[in-house]
C-alpha cells in the first residue's frame, strides 16, 4: 500500500508543544499510541473528526496540521 496523500506535521508540532509524547497526544484525542505512530509515518489518513481533534489539541487550524499532496516546506 502506497503512502497516503494526506500528510501532517504532527511530529514537529509535538516537539514544539513541550515535547509532547505520542501517548500524551493519543490520550488527548482519544486514540491509541499506535494510531499516532501510523499517522506520523504517513500510513494512515485520519477521519475528519480525528483530524479536527488533533488540530484542536495543538490549538491550530486544521490546515496547519494537515496538508494534501506534497508538503510545501519540502518543495
Amino acid at each position: 500500500m502506497g503512502k497516503v496523500l494526506v500528510g501532517n506535521h504532527i511530529r514537529k508540532l509535538r516537539f514544539n508543544h513541550n515535547e509532547m509524547t505520542q501517548q500524551q497526544l493519543a490520550d488527548k484525542v482519544g486514540v491509541t499510541r499506535q494510531t499516532i505512530v501510523a499517522l506520523e509515518k504517513g500510513n494512515y489518513s485520519p477521519s475528519l473528526e480525528l483530524a479536527f481533534r488533533i488540530a484542536h489539541a495543538f490549538n491550530l487550524p486544521l490546515e496547519e496540521v494537515f496538508f494534501y499532496g506534497q508538503n510545501s516546506e519540502e518543495e
Binding site: G30, V31, T32, R33, Q34, T35, A38, Y44, P46, S47, L50
Partner: peptide, 9 residues
C-alpha cells in the same frame, strides 16, 4: 495493552 479499539483498529 490498548484498552479500546479506535478508528484505525
Amino acid at each position: 495493552e490498548p484498552a479500546f479499539a479506535d478508528e484505525l483498529d
